[in-house]
Amino acid sequence: MKLEVVSLTKIYRHNIRNKIGNKHICNDECVIAVENVNFRVEEGEFVCILGPSGCGKTTIVRIIAGLDSPTSGEVLVDGVPVRGPGKDRCVVFQEFALFPWRTVLKNITFGLENTGVPKDERERIARKYIRLVGLEGFENAYPHELSGGMKQRVAIARALAIDPDILLMDEPFGSLDAQTRNLFQEELLRIWYETSKTIIFVTHSVDEAIFLADKILIMTARPGKIKKEIDVDLPRMRNRTSKEFNEIRSCVLDELRQEALKAMMMQHMKRLS
C-alpha cells in the first residue's frame, strides 16, 4: 500500500475576541499549521517526520489518520483520497490512550470487536500480538497497573491487532527515559521486520530518526513545510556511534539548527512589533 501526501495545507482558525474600549472586535487569527506538504511513502517503508516542536508534525499524522481534514490538498492511499479514519491506517498516540476500564487483552481486542471478529478468534489474535510485544502474563492487568513502557507496548499491540497497512506513530516513545527508549527503538524495528508494515513515525529526536528511518523528512518551523528529505542508507541494526551515523547526524543537525534560529528570530520580531 502506497501513501501520497499532495500539497497538503492546514490552517487553524482561532476566533479571538478583543475588547477595545467599549467595542468588541471579532477577528479570526489564522495559524498555518502546515503549508504545501508533499511526500510519498512506499509500501513497507519506515519514514520519520522530524522537526522542532509545534511545526505541524502531529497535524500531518492526524490528517493521514483521518482525524482532521486538510484545508487544501489531499492524502491518497493507493490513489484513493482519505475521508476519515479507516482500517488500513492506525495510530499509536503519544499519551497511549488505553481504555482504563479494559484489561490488556480487552484493549487489544477492541479494534477486532468493531469489525465483528468472533470472540475466540479475537483472543487468539490478541495473544499473538501480546507475545510479539512481550507482554505475556499481563493479559488480565488493567492499564493503571502497568508502567509507561508497558502501556506503550499495549498501545502498539492494539494498533497492530487490526492489521493496518500503515502504522502512524506520534512521538510514541516521548515519555520514556533515554535507555528504555533505545531498547524500544530496537524492538520496534524487530516488530517492523516481522509484520512488514509501512510506518510513519513522528519524532523530534535526531538520533531516533536516524536509527529507525529509511527516509527522514525534516520540517521547517511554523508554518510547517518539508525542508529536506534525507535517505538513510545504513544497514540495520545501526550503530549509533559509527562514523557514517555521525555524518548523517551532523547534516541533520545543521538543517535543524537553521530552523531553530529562524524560529527564534521570528519570536523576537513578534515581541518587537
Binding site: L67, K87, R89, A97
Partner: peptide, 26 residues
Amino acid sequence: PKTLIEAAKVLGCDSDVRLMRYVALP
C-alpha cells in the same frame, strides 16, 4: 477524553452509538 474517542475512531469504532456504548459509557 478526546484522546480515547480518537483512539476508538482509528480502531474502527465509527458510529455515535458505538462510541457512546463502548467509550463514553464505561
